[in-house]
Amino acid sequence: MAGGGTKSHKLVSYAKYGYMFILPFFLVYGFFMIWPFINTVLLSFKGNGSKVNEWVGFQNYSWLLFGDKSGGRFATGKVHHDAFFDGFGTTVILWAGNFIIQIVLSLLLAVWFSDVRIKIKGTGFFKVVMYLPNIIMAASVAAMFLMIFSNTKYGVINSLAINNGWIKDPIPFMSNKWMVRVIVMFIQAWLWFGNTMLLLLSGIFGIDPSIYEAAAIDGSSGSSTFFRITMPILKPIFLYVVVTSLIGGLQMFDIPYLMHTGNDPNDYLNTVATYIYKHFHKFNNFGFSAAASILLFIVTVLLGMIVMRFNTDATAPKKQRKK
């Protein structure tokens, strides 16, 4: 293959394939997403309400991040600052609870299902079934859980408890800040743990089983096998799971937005994503909405960068030597 006239004849002549293969992605992405992203950035420097066409510079950012001490209790800046930080706090709390349960559970299951020594009957069945919650639409999931945890005596839990005489008055699940949040954490974990487990499993199955056989012969115990052999090879996929769960969690929208009765979303479930959505679709506060989006992006990138520092790959040394 004729290549360009540079140092390593072999490498450069294949480089163009690299560009070719990645071209569709970048073309499509550039076309569909670049303008919207830039548009949002621009909007974040413009005003809200009747001032959506006016340039306000960094005011949206400054208000969101630092509030506005000058205007009294209900000044625009202060109110939005409070709403944004409240949203942020809730987002982190909901994400943390959901993430911990999910990762522990799915990692545990992935290991169990790939354990060559301690075999469990029916793993095929289990693997399939545990993914099923992810198949139901978020709106339906929210509707179902609202029925289960309703405040009134008609809710599933309440009616069961009252009919059996365990309690006299219905428990107001949805009115207690922490109960509501724990319920949402549980729902999110329940929805996604099968998904995460499958991802981890696919990573584990990519590992040559002869490695495990060798380890078993050498007398490696279960946990030792896991930490010294499985995890290092699984690390890239594990990191993928951590990063995507991080991103997904920071953008959590569906369930928090839908878990409510009545007209307004539940105040204990205000995430940053619901804040962004509300001010873009319901009210004409594009400036705040866009600025919040950009801030969310920045935070996500920072956290992502921290996680990705661990992303060394098993084959990296080999590649570098080739250079």
């Binding site: 919207p36 950009i294 990705m308």
Partner: peptide, 19 residues
Amino acid sequence: ILAVLMIPTQVVSAGFLDF
């Protein structure tokens, strides 16, 4: 690509519709 992954969908969805 990694950076793009981190852009919240809400950021682009409205502009996407307009476009």
